[in-house]
Design a binder for these strands. Structure first.
Lengths: 204, 204
DNA sequence: GGGGCTCTTTGATCTGCCGCAACAAACGGG
DNA sequence: CCCGTTTGTTGCGGCAGATCAAAGAGCCCC
C-alpha cells in the first residue's frame, strides 16, 4: 500500500485521492496530524523555509498530484497572484485546525475527541448515501486512535457502543455515520465556541 | 494585567517582551498554544486569509510592537523580498512546533510533557545566571498546566518532586532550572527523534 | 480451500492523574 | 498592620482509560 522513501524536495498540488500526514516517534507511536483534501497544496512546510527539521518520509500510491521543485515556489508566488493567497489560506486554515486539535487533546476526554475527529473527517471525505454518510477512505480503529491520541481498544469499545445506539455502522476498515447529528448532540460543547486571547507582558 | 478587547485586524512585529497566545473553550478551560519571542511577527493567521474563525481577543500591556493593517500585507510581501520569506519561515516553524506539541500530547505522559514544555521555554525566555537558568517571564503552575493539558495540582506535585531532587528551584510565579540537563536526561526519549510520513491513497 | 495475515471485539485488571478538601504562604491595598 | 486575594502544597479517593489476554472475523495470496 505504501511506497516509502520519496524525498520531499518539491511542493505538490493534490488533485484526487486522500492523504494522511503522520509522524512516528522514536518509541514507534504513530500520530496522524492531518488529512489533506483534493485541491490543496502540500509539502508547503519545506517551501516555507524551515530547515533542519526531520525530512518527512513519503508514501504514495495511486494518487493524482502535480509536483514542482521547491525552488520554483517564490517564482510562482511572484507570477500568479491568486496562487500565493490561496496557498497561504490553506496554511492559515491548517494552523487553525491544529489549534483546535491541541485544545481538544488538552481539555476533552477520549469520547469527545473521537466525535470531533469523525466530525472533521465527514465533510472532508464523506459521501452522502441514502442511509447516512460513508467515509470513502479506508480507516482502521488503529488509525482513529492515532488521530485522537487514544488506545485502539478504547476506540473499538466506543464504536461498538455507538453502533448499538444506531449512530454509526462499521465494518472492517469502513465507517458510516447513520445519524451524524446525534454524534454532536450527544456531546455538550458547541463546535466553534472557543475564543483566543493574546497575553502580553514586558520582561524584566 | 490584561487589557482585553483589542481587535485583531492588523499584523504585529513583536519587538520586546513576552507574549502568550491562548484559547478559552466554552467550558472555561484555557489552553496556551504558544509563546512568541521578540523579533517574530504575529497575527499572521488573519493576514493569511482564513476568515470565519473566531476573532482572537487581544490582551496587551507594556509591550513594544509595530503594527500595520492586514490589507498592507500583500503589498509588503511584494515590495520587500526578505520580508515574505522571513515571515513565512516563522509560520513554518510554528507549524512544526505545533506538530511536536500534538505528538507530545498524544503519546507522552504528563511528566514528560512538562519536561518538554520547560525545555521549550528555556531557550526562548531563559536567562543564564550563575546557578542555572531563570525563566524571566512570570509563570504560574496554572499557566504550565494550561500549556501541557494537565491539572494544576499535578504540576505542583511534579515541581515539588523536582525541587527535592535539586533539578529546579521555584518561588511564586518564578521558576529556575538549576540542572536543566537533568530535566531531559531523566526521560528516555531523544529530543528530535520523530519522523514524518505522508500516506496517500486513492478514493473509491 | 486453507493457511497466514490483519483487523476487530470483549472481559478483566491496573494505574496515572484528576479533583476534592483544607491549609499554608506570599502578595497588595487601604 | 490587618485583611482579602492569589498562588502554592499535600493527602486521599475515584475513575477514565491504558494495558493484558484471548478469541473471533474478514481478507489476500498461493
Amino acid at each position: 500500500m505504501l511506497s516509502k522513501g520519496l524525498h520531499v524536495d518539491r511542493v505538490f498540488l493534490f488533485l484526487d485521492g486522500h492523504i494522511r500526514v503522520q509522524r512516528t516517534t522514536a518509541q514507534g507511536d504513530q500520530i496522524i496530524l492531518l488529512h489533506i483534501a483534493p485541491g490543496q497544496v502540500f509539502g508547503i512546510g519545506a517551501a516555507l523555509g524551515h530547515k533542519g527539521y526531520p525530512d518527512p518520509e513519503m508514501a504514495a500510491e495511486d494518487c493524482v498530484v502535480l509536483a514542482w521543485p521547491n525552488r520554483l515556489w517564490p517564482e510562482f508566488v511572484a507570477r500568479y497572484d491568486g496562487f500565493a493567497s490561496q496557498s497561504y489560506a490553506v496554511v492559515g486554515e491548517r494552523l487553525n485546525d491544529m489549534h483546535a486539535v491541541i485544545v481538544e487533546m488538552a481539555t476533552k476526554q477520549v469520547e469527545q475527541r473521537l466525535v470531533a475527529a469523525l466530525l472533521r473527517l465527514i465533510p472532508q471525505m464523506g459521501r452522502k448515501v441514502d442511509d447516512g454518510i460513508d467515509l470513502e477512505f479506508p480507516i482502521t480503529r488503529q488509525n482513529i486512535s492515532d488521530m485522537t491520541g487514544s488506545a485502539l481498544l478504547t476506540v473499538s469499545r466506543l464504536l461498538s457502543a455507538w453502533e448499538k445506539d444506531r449512530i454509526v455502522v462499521s465494518q472492517r476498515k469502513k465507517i458510516s455515520a447513520t445519524a451524524p447529528h446525534r454524534l454532536s448532540c450527544g456531546v455538550v460543547w458547541p463546535a466553534d465556541a472557543t475564543t483566543s486571547k493574546v497575553d502580553l507582558q514586558m520582561s524584566g
